[in-house]
Every structure is written in structure tokens, then in C-alpha cells.
């Protein structure tokens, strides 16, 4: 009983925290983009205002949409993004669901919000949304390859270093990959860091990988028919997914905590690590989403596939080779 209660309470707290952090991230993002374009930009609270406004507006269901799918999908997207967070450790706080899920599960769960978007797009019965949904599927197929490669190679390297349960997040909390590899492996991990930084905007449909939403040619793509509350729920889902995706990258590749440096223990350590964790999330989001999105224009969908499969796929293979050589030299094999 107590376990269930604490899981439910934890989920609610985590969901509110994630929505808050996600919208805050979006505010920082818009503000920095504005500064890079030599303007003032909106106040940090703008995303909160936008969502509040969307919830107060009328929600239209188009005449040729499938109403139950159309209305259900925003909720599915939000719920699945929150579900990802239940399996992730934040700083030195263990995941709410403990060891019930591992990295592979999170990889699958991260696809669900995009799938919900795709189904919602098809269900809205607009040709723009249909084209957008098809593009979203293609870009999902494109970025999944380098993402899966990097996750699996890290787990493999941990396994070779005789770490038990390499896919589990609790293992990742205790052992960082950076500690088990030698010099060659560090180069490989740096490549994986670059890979992750480029997969993040793809996963989140941000410029230059926002081809499914393409405002100029598809008028908002998948979301074209969504209005009012449904659009608001989708933007909350997007905010939570941003936190989840960046947190996933931070846990795997930037796992350091501050508490050992200060020699803290107990609740103090957890609080310091949690704050430090979110600081890392903000910094990663600035570098891999905001700066990239200001500098670049949108890729065509064929270019998205080419970039992810050939350039980042190639980089992934380079990282695999480096990490394997490293394992060989370090005597793990």
C-alpha cells in the first residue's frame, strides 16, 4: 500500500516538476534565440502564458477527423512523456519505479509521444497533417539508428568492463562510462556526445529537423488541425519530452554529481545533485537545441535521413570501433 502511495505521489510531483522545468526551458530557449538575433525576446514566463491561453480557448474537432483518436492522442503523448521520467534517476535520486525499467524500455517509451503525434495527425483528416505525419515517421526511423547505436555501445562497453546489469539506470548511477574506458574510449565517448547532441533536436522536432512541422510549407504539419486545449496538452507533452530526452542523454554521458565534491550525504546531497542535474539539462539544451536552431535552416526530409544514417550513422560506427579497440587494449576482451 505504502509503495503504491509513494509511487503515485512521486509521479504527481515529478509530472508537475517536469512540466515546470520543460516550460522554463522553452522560455530560456526563446529568450536566447531572441538575444542571438539582436532583439529582446519574450519574458521567461511566455510559454506558461501561452499554455494558459490555449487551455482557455475553444477546442475545435474538424468535421472529417476521428474524434476519439483526435482527442485521445494529446493525452497519450503527455502520459508517455511523463512515464519516461519514472524510470530515470535524477542526480542521486533513484528512479521512482526503481529497477523496473532499463535503457531499452526508455528508448521505446521515447518513441511513444512521436507515435501519438503521428496518429493524431492522421486522425485529423487534413492533407497537411497527413504529410507531416509521414515525415515524422520517416525522421523517427532516421534518428532511431544512431540513438540505438550509441545506447547499445555504451552498455556493451560497461558489460566488457565487468559491470553487472549494464542496461539498468541504477548501474549507470553508480558507474560512469568515463571511468571504465581508456584514452581511445574517451575519444569514442566524445563522438557519442556529439551524436547525442545532434539526435536531441531530431527527437524533439526542432530546427533543423522540424521537417514534420514545417510552418512555411505544411502550415504547422502534424499539429495543423489542433487548437485550444488539445494543442495545449501537446505543448505540455513537448515540454516534458524535452526534459526526458535531455535528461536521458545527461544520465548516460554526463553522469557526474556534485555531492562527492562537497562531501555531502543524505537529503542535502540529493537536493544539491537534483539542482546540479537540472543545471546540466539547461546547459545541454542551450547547446544542442537553442544554438543549433538559431544557426541553421530546415533540412528537407531526404536530407534528414541522409544526415542521420550516413553522417551520424558513420560517426556511430567510428565510436563503436574506437570503443571496441579500447576494450581490447584495456584487456577486457
Amino acid at each position: 500500500m505504502n509503495i503504491i502511495l509513494s509511487a503515485v505521489g512521486g509521479t504527481v510531483v515529478l509530472a508537475i516538476l517536469a512540466i515546470f522545468v520543460g516550460l522554463f526551458l522553452a522560455g530560456i530557449d526563446r529568450r536566447i534565440v531572441a538575444h542571438m538575433q539582436a532583439r529582446m525576446g519574450p519574458p521567461l514566463s511566455q510559454p506558461f502564458t501561452d499554455v494558459k491561453k490555449l487551455f482557455a480557448k475553444q477546442s475545435i474537432v474538424p468535421a472529417n477527423a476521428i474524434p476519439w483518436l483526435f482527442n485521445l492522442m494529446p493525452v497519450v503523448a503527455l502520459a508517455s512523456s511523463i512515464a519516461v521520467l519514472l524510470y530515470l534517476p535524477f542526480g542521486s535520486l533513484a528512479p521512482i519505479l526503481g529497477d523496473a525499467g532499463d535503457m531499452i524500455l526508455v528508448l521505446y517509451l521515447l518513441i511513444v509521444p512521436s507515435l501519438a503525434l503521428v496518429i493524431g495527425g492522421f486522425a485529423s483528416g487534413s492533407p497537411y497533417a497527413t504529410v507531416g505525419a509521414q515525415r515524422e515517421m520517416v525522421s523517427m526511423i532516421a534518428y532511431e539508428l544512431p540513438l540505438a547505436v550509441s545506447v547499445i555501445i555504451i552498455a556493451w562497453r560497461l558489460m566488457v568492463a565487468n559491470v553487472a546489469n549494464p542496461f539498468s539506470f541504477t548501474t549507470l548511477m553508480e558507474t560512469s562510462v568515463w571511468d571504465v574506458v581508456g584514452p581511445l574510449g574517451i575519444v569514442g565517448l566524445l563522438i557519442l556526445l556529439i551524436l547525442f547532441a545532434w539526435i536531441t533536436p531530431g527527437e524533439l522536432s526542432k530546427v533543423p529537423f522540424d521537417t514534420p512541422e514545417a510552418e512555411t510549407e505544411l502550415a504547422g504539419g502534424i499539429l495543423v488541425e489542433y487548437s485550444g486545449r488539445n494543442l495545449g496538452v501537446f505543448s505540455l507533452a513537448q515540454a516534458v519530452k524535452t526534459v526526458a530526452m535531455i535528461a536521458f542523454g545527461v544520465i548516460i554521458l554526463l553522469p557526474w554529481n556534485l555531492s562527492p565534491v562537497f562531501g555531502l550525504t543524505g537529503a542535502g546531497a540529493a537536493a544539491v545533485d537534483l539542482v546540479f542535474f537540472f543545471v546540466k539539462v539547461v546547459i545541454v539544451s542551450i547547446f544542442s537545441v537553442t544554438v543549433v536552431r538559431t544557426m541553421m535552416a530546415r533540412f528537407r526530409i531526404t536530407q534528414v535521413v541522409k544526415v542521420y544514417w550516413f553522417i551520424f550513422g558513420g560517426l556511430g560506427i567510428a565510436a563503436i570501433i574506437l570503443l571496441m579497440l579500447d576494450a581490447f587494449l584495456m584487456g577486457g576482451l
Binding site: 531572441a34 532583439r39 525576446g41 519574450p42 511566455q46 505544411l218 504547422g220 495543423v224 488541425e225 494543442l231
Partner: peptide, 12 residues
């Protein structure tokens, strides 16, 4: 955008 004004692609 200072005042939250944003150009959107869809009338919805």
C-alpha cells in the same frame, strides 16, 4: 515577440 506576439502557420 516581446509582447508574446507570434506568427503561426495555421488558422487553428
Amino acid at each position: 515577440e516581446r509582447f508574446g506576439v507570434k506568427l503561426v502557420g495555421s488558422p487553428r
